[in-house]
Simulated assay, not measured.
Amino acid sequence: MAMTAAEVRKLITDAFPDATVTITDLVGDGDHWAAEIIAPVFAGKSRVQQHQLVNAALKEAFAGPLHALSLTTRAPA
C-alpha cells in the first residue's frame, strides 16, 4: 500500500518537529518519494550522519509501506 505525501511528511515531522520538510512524488505512483529536510538537529553532522538519523527514525515505515525515499538534508543556514 502506497503512502501519501502527507503521511511521509508526518513521519518526518514527528521525528524532527523543528524541521522544514518538502515532499515530492518522483514518478507519480505514491511509492517513490524525495524529501528535503532542513533541521537544526543536523548541525555539525556529516551528510551520512544526517541520513542515518532520518533512516533510523523511519525504520518501521521502511519495513512496511514506505518503498523508496531520496533524501536531501541540511541544517538551517
Score class of each variant (00 low, 15 high):
T4K: 12
A5K: 14
A5G: 15
A5M: 13
A6V: 13
E7Q: 15
K10A: 15
L11P: 06
I12C: 07
I12V: 14
T13V: 15
T13C: 08
T13P: 04
D14F: 10
A15M: 04
F16S: 04
P17N: 04
P17V: 08
D18C: 03
D18N: 12
T20D: 15
T24P: 00
D25Y: 10
L26A: 09
L26P: 03
L26C: 07
V27H: 06
V27A: 14
G28W: 07
G28Y: 07
H32A: 09
W33E: 06
A34C: 08
A35L: 09
E36N: 05
E36Y: 01
I38R: 03
I38G: 01
A39H: 03
A39K: 00
P40G: 15
V41D: 14
V41R: 08
F42W: 06
F42E: 06
A43W: 01
A43P: 00
A43D: 13
G44H: 11
K45C: 08
K45N: 09
S46M: 07
S46W: 09
R47Q: 14
Q52C: 00
Q52V: 11
V54S: 02
A57F: 05
L58W: 02
L58E: 00
K59T: 12
K59V: 11
A61C: 07
F62R: 01
A63I: 00
G64F: 06
H67A: 12
H67P: 04
L69G: 05
T72Q: 13
T73Y: 08
R74N: 11
R74E: 13
P76S: 12
A77C: 01
A77N: 12
